[in-house]
Design a protein around this nucleic acid. Structure first.
Length: 415
DNA sequence: TCTGGGGTCCTAGGACCC
DNA sequence: TCTGGGGTCCTAGGACCC
């Protein structure tokens, strides 16, 4: 049996952990740059605030209803997430951390799964302070489905361990809520008259293959309790890594763009090293604000083949800035720059290039030092000067909470 | 004025090989 | 008048996830 455990309104729950007076009050958390609503308390949902809606469109309602608003604080959420996952790992040896707030677990040869699921849920809530829901089923897809049902129930637990339970659950389950059915497939299936998971399950395999291709066939088998999506216990090396941010304001200024690109590329190089990967291809993309119909649009990108596989900060930054300069056009106002690396290979398997001079070893040492210092004194303590100091492009974060659990200066004071 | 960021997998079609 | 059969690799675009 698979279980899916996930944090209810996770980011909001993290913020409430250190602001208990907000329990029972409407709370929302915003995306980067204070752009959109990405997490809502039940009270905020009840006010009709929709997921993903731009913040500026609901500011009146939020003010009127005295909704508490937080900028996103991923440092905090990542740390609370680690606590949650560590707690879950005590209940079974087989664990897959699926996302910041979700975890798959498997249970083998266990009786009393109902009791155990309730016990797990209560222990985790007590130990972390984060409310969670627990769904169990014979496949990941059914565990996901059970979890959605659990979220709406009062007990917070749903176990689908018999064919009757599965049949009953799928009959009322909307296909749009199925794991693997997004907006496009929802429309397609509804045109075929399919609105529930049970109706999808009743279709023949060939029909599914034709309409939804191979992923749909896997989903279909999983609905019948046949495992197609295994538990992934080991994290695989990423195939691509991307760092991109919207600016706090539009800019045409090349020097500001170079600063931002340097900052993003530095962050990217850190992520590469954390994954012990080296990049062979680097892409830089500039973006104008697609919502501003009154402004000219321009979204150029360039991919550079790197002469050596690299993950050191100076070389990644150098390549990124070179790419940026080659696509920059001063006639446009930009809202975002993205730096992406692909063709990633293990750090240990890097082959040297016979034909070009290279400062790699020296730059690798510099990067090692950067990592050591920034790990000890905090991210960004030591950085390349071309990141700049004023950072007028920096993203908006007007309501960010303290880093209660990761920064000595932010520790909660109890007087 | 103000609209997020980071990933994966699959398919079709083109270029190329023998 | 008539123009094969069987592959691989790469990329863009579309679907999905959180």
């Amino acid at each position: 049996m698979f279980a899916l455990v996930d944090g209810n309104n996770f980011y909001v729950s993290c913020e409430r952990l250190f602001r208990p007076e907000l329990n029972g009050q409407p709370v929302v958390v915003l995306s980067n740059n204070d752009g959109c609503i990405i997490s809502r308390s039940n009270e905020a949902k009840a006010l009709g605030i929709k997921m993903g809606v731009p913040y500026f469109k609901v500011t009146d309602l939020i003010e009127q209803e005295k909704v508490a608003v937080f900028s996103s604080n991923y440092t905090l959420y990542a740390d609370i997430s680690a606590r949650l996952m560590n707690n879950l790992a005590r209940f079974t040896p087989e664990v897959e951390v699926y996302s910041i707030d979700e975890c798959f677990l498997t249970f083998k040869g266990m009786e009393n799964l109902h009791t155990y699921a309730h016990y797990l849920r209560e222990s985790v809530i007590q130990n972390t302070g984060i409310p969670v829901s627990v769904g169990l089923g014979p496949t990941k897809t059914l565990a996901k489905l059970a979890n959605k049902i659990a979220k709406k129930s009062t007990s917070g637990v749903c176990v689908l361990d018999t064919e009757e339970a599965i049949t009953k659950a799928t009959q009322i389950f909307p296909i749009a809520d199925l794991w693997g059915i997004g907006r496009a497939y929802q429309v397609k299936l509804e045109l075929e008259g399919i609105t529930t998971a049970a109706q999808l399950r009743a279709k023949p395999e060939q029909w599914i293959k034709h309409q939804l291709t191979i992923q749909g066939v896997r989903l279909w088998h999983e609905l019948w309790g046949r495992t197609c999506i295994p538990l992934k216990e080991v994290l695989e090396r990423k195939q691509a890594i991307c760092t991109s941010r919207s600016f706090g304001k539009l800019t045409s200024n090349l020097y500001e763009l170079i600063e931002a690109t340097t900052a993003y590329a530095s962050r990217l190089a850190e992520k590469l090293r954390a994954d012990t990967s080296c990049a062979t291809v680097l892409t830089v993309q500039l973006l104008t604000n697609r919502f501003r119909k009154d402004l000219a649009q321009y979204n150029p990108a360039i991919s550079l083949a790197l002469s050596h596989p690299i993950n050191n900060t100076p070389d990644i930054v150098k390549a990124s800035v070179k790419g940026l300069k080659s696509i920059y056009d001063p006639r446009f106002q930009y809202s975002k720059v993205a730096v992406i690396v692909t063709g990633l290979i293990p750090e240990q398997e890097v082959q040297l290039n016979l034909f070009t001079e290279w400062n790699g070893p020296k730059h690798n040492q510099v990067s090692e030092l950067l990592d050591r210092i920034n790990q000890y004194y905090g991210s960004g303590t030591l950085r390349l000067a071309s990141e700049g100091f004023r950072k007028r492009w920096a993203m908006k974060r007007e309501n960010v909470s303290p880093n209660y659990t990761t920064d000595w200066g932010d520790i909660l004071r109890v007087c």
